[in-house]
Design a protein around this nucleic acid. Structure first.
Lengths: 161, 161
DNA sequence: CGTGAAATAAAAGAGCC
DNA sequence: GGCTCTTTTATTTCACG
């Protein structure tokens, strides 16, 4: 059932868990105005339906020594299915690549790369990304300051569900 | 102490919690080869040091009805401190804006915006973003496909800590 | 700094309204 | 769909190596 109906309680559960993924079920229950059992059932249902995809600890990027974020626009030389698929597989397998989207715009792909510093990014760029023969052009936008990062998803559009 | 030394166990703790933020302390302990007590002490220390910034449930974007991701390059008309600060505050306060970085490149800022569909994005663009007088130019790169999104941070660079 | 054991508290699952 | 009660399991603290 891909289109499960969400009521106000479900939305509060999603918002609360998105703000604090380690909320205990009893705390969550009384925050959303339910007793623990039905609250847990709803959480399980949301997990099974894929609305909750998982739980994760958020690491401080500077604190773990990944102070540099770079957004990389990539143009590839061939859009033949197989060549593009190989590029995608290679890029997705690179741990430095935090995100990779195929985009409609000037570039073909937009990558977000996390690195300790410029030297490490240079190695990534020269030795790993440009090592892929299909890569035709690369444009690096270096993040000078992160004003907002990995913010919780907005759920306001569900309010008239 | 901003530069706490991390040993191999700390790194495994970070990796494990990043993969599953709801790991119980006993599971975490035996996954990293420790007994529960010292494991919990280390986790608390990592939290206090900011290496672990928090915990969050990850929501499925499609599943919660946010199927559209757009990367928006923004150029502003004035870089005077106050004008730029007002722009930043306004953008950071918009819930649709999942991420906002000041970048060195063609644009001044790069935004990641999550929206239910193109119509909603259009409303965001026209009514909210372009409503800011300081915004001079906007370039929208629409994500066609998310190959990787919000991936765990790579910790390999800590291995020779 | 690590281990092990005990008490407290929460989660998971039963049955019932 | 929600509530209460019971069993199981984790979290936390304390004493010890």
């Amino acid at each position: 059932m891909p289109k499960t109906e969400l009521d106000a309680v479900d939305r509060r559960i999603l918002a609360a868990l998105q703000a604090d993924g380690r909320l205990s079920n009893v705390d969550l229950a009384d925050r959303v105005g339910l007793s623990p059992s039905p609250c847990l059932r709803r959480v399980r249902r949301l997990e099974a339906a894929g609305l909750i995809g998982g739980y994760r600890a958020l690491l401080g990027r500077e604190a773990v020594g990944l102070g540099l974020t770079v957004f990389v626009g990539v143009k590839i030389g061939s859009h033949a299915d197989q060549a593009a698929a190989e590029f995608e597989a290679a890029v997705v397998a690179m741990p430095e690549v935090i995100a990779c989207h195929m985009v409609a715009g000037e570039a073909d792909y937009l990558l977000e790369v996390a690195a300790p510093d410029l030297a490490a990014y240079q190695r990534f760029l020269l030795d790993r990304l440009l090592a892929l023969a299909i890569v035709r052009e690369v444009k690096s936008d270096i993040a000078i300051q992160a004003l907002k990062q990995g913010a919780p998803l907005p759920l306001g559009h569900l309010d008239a569900g």
